[in-house]
């Protein structure tokens, strides 16, 4: 969490937001402002290359608006945002910014453009003017990284939700991004589809060092991140490691958020007088702590 303009720091930080403010403005026919909603209100943060960040917050907290700023789909009314050192206000750099910070959306059907999987993955490189002879290698490479190479000639309509989202991720990977922004990519998927998509994203982050920004409603997804940013009414309400965030369950509750299920279990056990040795944020930790506590009882 830093707003410092220190240049050595800016070089390390792949995303650097300073005091972002954004309003959704509704106008009537004469152009008069009817209603203005503040979606982002002085948001500042910086994210190191290679981190896995989860952004959580209830509906309307501004997390999707923030995501759209990260690849210059929206420009801040005030403040500046640097993506890998590029100012999103710079119209000449907009393609480079979008290439650097690729975005995957919620609805898999509404972001697949091609009628065949490989055609869709090629859409980004084609737009960037990548030479023809290099596009096919990029497409094959991107599809194999999300384990979808064998479906390359399939129609997107014949794929499952999880497969469609993996194709969408491949479409971004084919542009060789440094940051992957995922705006609730699992919200419309079944549990197995969710798992497919998340493990693909985690593998890309872990093995290739691609920075991942996961916007999510699911606290258990957020628990697997390196750092969690909690948004509330356009501001950053909390930030820290998942353990730091989820050990403040009362504070989260006032923001309309729950803690992951394993943490809830630990809280309930605590109320029953069984205190665990720490705050478990995932199932494995919970099981380990319960076993540890149980053996101490004997």
């Amino acid at each position: 969490m830093s707003t410092s303009a220190d240049s050595s720091r800016a070089a390390r930080d792949i995303l650097d937001a300073r005091d972002l403010t954004f309003r959704y403005v509704r106008r009537d026919e004469e152009g008069q402002v009817v209603q203005a909603t503040v979606a982002l209100d002085g948001v500042s943060f910086s994210i190191r290359a290679g981190d896995f960040i989860a952004i959580i917050g209830h509906n309307g907290s501004g997390k999707s608006t923030l995501a759209k700023h990260l690849n210059a789909l929206l420009l801040p009314d005030q403040g500046t945002l640097f993506v890998d050192g590029l100012d999103t206000h710079d119209a000449a750099k907009i393609l480079e910014i979008r290439r650097t910070a690729g975005m995957v959306f919620q609805n898999p059907d509404n972001q697949i453009i091609g009628q065949i999987v490989e055609e869709d993955v090629a859409f980004g490189p084609e737009n960037l003017g990548v030479p023809t002879e290099k596009i096919l290698t990029r497409v094959e490479n991107a599809l194999s990284r999300v384990d979808m190479l064998k479906k390359r000639h399939a129609s997107p309509n014949k794929l499952s939700g999880g497969q469609k989202q993996r194709v969408s991720i491949a479409g971004i990977l084919a542009m060789k991004p440094k940051v992957l922004i995922l705006d609730e990519p699992t919200a419309m998927l079944d549990p197995s589809g969710r798992q497919e998509v998340l493990s693909a994203v985690h593998a890309l982050n872990r093995d290739e060092g691609i920075t991942a920004i996961l916007i999510t409603h699911d606290m258990e997804e957020a628990a697997d991140a390196d750092r969690v940013i909690v948004m509330d009414r356009g501001k950053i309400a909390m930030t820290g490691t998942p353990r730091e965030i989820f050990s403040r369950s009362e504070e989260l509750a006032t923001l309309g958020l729950a803690v992951p299920f394993p943490t809830q279990v630990a809280d309930l056990l605590g109320k029953q007088g069984v205190s665990l040795p720490g705050t478990p944020i995932n199932r494995q930790e919970l099981v380990a702590m319960i076993l540890q506590t149980a053996s101490a009882f004997k």
């Binding site: 393609l95 979008r98 509404n110 859409f123």
Partner: peptide
């Protein structure tokens, strides 16, 4: 609504018309 979403997704994938566009299988 779908059209709106799709337009945004196309923009996010650097679509900017035919100018400077190449093809995978020309």
């Amino acid at each position: 609504r779908r059209a709106n979403d799709l337009a945004m997704a196309m923009e996010a994938r650097c679509y900017h018309g035919s100018e400077g566009r190449t093809r995978m299988k020309p």
